[in-house]
Design a protein around this nucleic acid. Structure first.
Lengths: 246, 246
DNA sequence: CGGCGATTTGATAATGGTCAAGTGCCGTGG
DNA sequence: CCACGGCACTTGACCATTATCAAATCGCCG
């Protein structure tokens, strides 16, 4: 518990992207006790089977959750951007059923479950907002399932790129039609249930059609309409509209 | 709001499968106001895009959630058994991002969101239990994603059958190594991201190997060990152990 | 008996996987 | 400054799992 505030900016920005916080709510969040850590790329934060007593707020950088098959194949379940709490579910589900790792070097804050419990008891609206975040998480899982189960490679890739751009945009991390997206083709493959080779060819096709540019960790959406149509993308499932005043 | 109790038995049984209720908690749940309805097979309960003001408790029969692709392909996202609240998420996520339908004729109780809100405010432990249920929902989505993205047909089918059996068993609806499973091969296909033809051939193979029997809406697991191994199944993600005393 | 939905079967095609080798990029150390 | 090493990306050839299409059978209910 080694900080005071200024670290929670990403968290507050994220919550405020769908929620209007009152002053007292913002104040208590700013002072939320967390212990900071800096993580290397690819470092596990929590592992499948762990029983963590704290959750992890992503302050800078990107993370992802994944599971592994008996024969060692990896499925990436979600990508996480600054301000998110990727393992909030461990608050009520005590044993991890998947792992969480750093996609890039990143800065995180660990908050004890006890602390979160106190927070949601004293500030029920924050409790509801956090519950809501976990529900949006689930909505994203459902959307990915539709892709994994029923879409061809190109629409799958297109959809993911649309989603990541919108999520980055919602927390102010996109500029114009570009945003950081430091994801490897192998990671894309593991997220979309495809092989690295096929991801490569699909990306080339999207580039050839002038829909996107993606290189050196940066994504540019060159033809949003076409990309959304191809990916059958409708951002409604992200439930991003600010919705309830303080 | 046309009933008193005896209808909520399935709900209570479900909650008690992972949670020890106090007497007052059980009492308030028993009296939970809900309006009953009887639904036909395949009838939509709520639709993608709706903004429901109530959630649906499944009292008898089976339900499923699904999404549809632009070209009309269906992905089934989850199956639901008696006692579950398949659209509880609409409490905090106001617009449906998928549909919910009756897999078999079924009896449901609709509970107004207002009512649930009152319930979780007065009984925070029930609130936590419900939050937990939505998190387990998400855990099941994650497990399905691993299958959709990274497993071949046979393991996918095997895994689903293991899961459905364990969930039925947890609420007392299995007898020995059998349980009701009134699911069509086409529905299995849409849940597992495969074609109906391929599901048919895969089921035949599982039967030929003596792992299962599945017909007339009833599943029998004839070799649990082999089926679990094949499906790479570990029930930990269902988080079924009763865990916190009242 | 008729009819309809569910299941089964066979033949053929396609999307995407695997394997293997090569290229490009970038940071490190001589 | 340049060679080296490693990792991500790219390419080509071949293969496999699964989709598609079409038709036949089964089972149950009226």
């Amino acid at each position: 518990v080694n900080n005071l505030n200024e670290h929670t900016g990403a968290l507050i920005r994220k919550l405020e992207s769908t929620f209007v916080l009152s002053d007292s709510e913002r104040a208590v969040l700013t002072r939320l006790p967390m212990s900071l850590a800096q993580l290397r790329r690819d470092q596990d934060i929590v592992r499948d089977g762990d029983r963590p007593t704290r959750s992890c707020v992503l302050l800078e950088g990107f993370a992802f959750r994944y599971k592994t098959t008996a024969k060692g194949e990896r499925q990436i379940l979600s990508f996480h951007i600054p301000g998110e709490i990727p393992d909030l579910q461990s608050l009520h589900i005590h044993k991890m059923d998947h792992s969480l790792a750093a996609l890039t070097p990143c800065k995180v804050g660990f908050v004890e479950h006890e602390e979160i419990q106190r927070l949601v008891e004293s500030f029920p609206r924050i409790g509801a907002a956090l519950w809501r975040e976990t529900l949006i998480d689930a909505a994203i899982f459902r959307q990915w399932m539709l892709g994994l189960g029923r879409k061809d490679a190109a629409p799958r890739v297109a959809h993911l790129l649309c989603e990541m751009f919108d999520r980055m945009n919602a927390v102010g991390l996109a500029k114009g039609d570009s945003c950081p997206l430091p994801i490897t083709q192998a990671e894309l493959a593991d997220a979309l249930g495809l092989s690295g080779v096929h991801i490569n060819r699909t990306l080339q096709e999207l580039r050839r059609q002038g829909l996107i540019a993606l290189s050196k960790g940066s994504l540019t959406i060159k033809d949003q309409t076409a990309l959304r149509t191809l990916g059958d993308y409708d951002p409604a499932y992200l439930h991003q509209e600010p919705w309830k005043a303080a």
